[in-house]
Amino acid sequence: MSANSVIISVSKLFKTYASGFEALKDINLDIRRGEIFALLGPNGAGKTTLISTICGIVNPSEGQITVDGHDIVRDYRAARTVIGLVPQELTTDAFETVWNTVSFSRGLFGKPANPAHIEKTLKDLSLWEKRDSKIIALSGGMKRRLMIAKALSHEPQVLFLDEPTAGVDVTLRRDMWALVRALRATGVTVILTTHYIEEAEEMADRIGVINKGQIILVEDKAELMRKLGKKQMTLQLEQPMQAVPAGFDHYQLSLAQNGNELVYTYDASEKVEIADLLKALNDAGIRFKDLHTTQSSLEDIFVSLVEGKQ
């Protein structure tokens, strides 16, 4: 990968808190320019600590992080200027107006006032009508969008979304996904943490899994699904069976639904001879009236990965 195609580089990063708790252990991670990267992990895995360290909120114990080629410690101004952060918690100044708080964020990040950009951002996030409202008067969904507006106020190249859809309804979640895709289309790199597997499955180009402070996997989503995804073919039998018939030991077969279904499990990546299996079943006089296939979800993959490392 060329240096130019990497926008964030994390190298040998460790974080040990004053209590002695090791939150991050030897993290090495490259984020590609323009991608949507989903960081998955159970609660307490180190997702927020990693994001907070990259953004400058948490001091690293060891290691190096560069953002757009700038070291986050030595050249923190340049590094932070390109970052927008949407934290998990809805932390806002309750008595400030929408317009003022977004304008404040832009100034804080060193950009001169640009009412046209603030207006566009508020309109994109359906907050324009609320621009003169105090934040305390906004709904939870609006506050969530406001946090994004603040993070986008200074036109960042990288946007961190820490659990962006935690506790939001389905409609808003889909709006968020659409927004993230629209941002990616403009060249913004998006890094999101989530424990909603469907969110990562729906949006991410690449997925990283973190557990107990260690990155245990980074992979293209499609490749991950292909490598680790299990497929199952379920045959609905005409006659229920008591046991898997003899002579089929080399197929991974099991019975379900009180013997009314015969389930064949196989790896999506390996070459399987489904036709051979169906022919053998037919030759053995086993008739079926319907069949369907399913593929394991990212959630299944995630659970097996995390549990496998425990």
Partner: peptide
Amino acid sequence: TIYELLSAP
């Protein structure tokens, strides 16, 4: 809201 101050340049 201190997060914003700490993450700003």
